[in-house]
């Protein structure tokens, strides 16, 4: 599992430029899916057919979603000395970028520099630039074009029971979904495993994927914040506390039936869990829930420290709990009782 997490974490896939990460995920999941397609936004949609068709009625559709895009930057201007100006892609804090390196899709590496500042509090993106080691504009343009996106350059660190790296948001969830796909085969109903694009730009890939799939229930898997480091704001989620079951964030009020099924399923299977009310932030479930006539939806969250930095950290015990909970949820929903929802 750690090998998969390392591979996904270190791959390239800023929002809107997900070609590389999509290829990597596709090669991991193709063998478990009955049909794999990519929608016009670029989301990877894997359909897994049931062992047996639902008797009488048409099969219902279960949508499981993790987003494969990551935050990054996009080049907005190249000056005559070969320095790049840039804009953030997704929610990025300029202070996080100091001393960091980025890598473009073609492997070109850049480092961040800043203009002269009277006070570090004045640091904004427009006071920063990227230096790719070019001596002038022509040399820079031979390597990078305006509109090219880059991601943080950060290697995966195995710390034992915890691991750290860039893009754990949301590649750790991609790993959870891939592993759950390996473990479960629905009895009834179809399961659509979606690796969505452009979540960091406003849940955009999940919105169109859900419209296309027209699911009867939706589960997003994403990271959430943490409340267990020194002098942190109160938050009911700790690293190592198990899978986090979301009640609310700013994009979604988890459907009570879906939330309760997650709690009951975790208890029935002895899976450690914690309950989450997130003040700010959203997940793809917010988009899925408002699709067409509405879709009962919920989110399984992986607790993650230092979200939206190159050093996001997760606990592999929590990851395992999330895999087990997701696989058990799919089995509950795809059973004749439909988890009381389908």
């Amino acid at each position: 599992m750690k090998d998969l997490v390392k591979k996904l974490s270190e791959s390239f896939g800023p929002s809107g430029s997900e070609d590389q990460i999509r290829q990597i995920i596709r090669s991991e999941v193709e063998q478990y899916a009955d049909e794999v397609r990519v929608d016009s936004m670029g989301s990877l949609i894997c359909r897994v057919a049931p062992k047996a068709a639902a008797p009488g009625a048409a099969a219902k559709r279960i949508m499981v979603d993790a987003h494969m895009d990551e935050i990054g930057i996009v080049v907005s201007y190249i000056d005559d000395k070969g320095f790049l100006r840039f804009s953030p892609v997704g929610g990025l804090n300029p202070h996080v970028l100091l001393g960091q390196r980025v890598v473009f899709g073609n492997g070109v590496v850049g480092v961040f520099g800043t203009e002269k500042l009277d006070d570090i509090k004045d640091l904004k993106f427009d006071k920063m630039f990227i230096d790719i080691g070019a001596r002038d504009r022509a040399e820079a343009q031979a390597k990078v074009r305006v509109g090219d996106a880059a991601v943080m350059l950060a290697s995966f660190a195995d710390m034992g029971c915890r691991v750290s790296g860039k893009a754990m948001d949301d590649r750790i969830a991609c790993a959870v979904v891939i592993e759950a796909m390996r473990r479960s085969r629905p009895k009834l109903h179809e399961v659509y495993y979606v690796f969505a694009v452009q979540e960091e730009l406003g849940l955009r890939g999940a919105r169109t994927a859900a419209y296309g799939i027209n699911p009867d229930v939706g589960i997003a898997v994403d990271v959430t914040l943490w409340g267990d480091t020194p002098e942190h704001a109160p938050f009911n989620v700790s690293l190592g506390g198990g899978a986090a079951i979301k009640a609310k964030d700013s994009s979604l009020i988890a459907h009570p039936a879906v939330k309760n099924l997650m709690i009951d399923t975790a208890e029935k299977n002895g899976i450690p869990y914690q309950l989450e009310v997130l003040e700010r932030g959203g997940t793809d479930a917010g988009a899925i829930a408002l699709t067409r006539e509405g879709v009962p939806s919920g989110t399984i969250s992986i607790p993650c420290r230092y979200v939206h930095t190159p050093a996001e950290m997760v606990d592999m015990g929590d990851v395992d709990a999330c895999v087990r909970l997701l696989a058990a949820m799919v089995e509950e929903l795809a059973s004749p009782a439909g988890g009381g929802i389908l």
């Binding site: 408002l290 699709t291 067409r292 006539e293 509405g294």
Partner: peptide, 10 residues
Amino acid sequence: YGGGITSTFG
């Protein structure tokens, strides 16, 4: 207005 969005669709 989540309910307004989905009910109008229906």
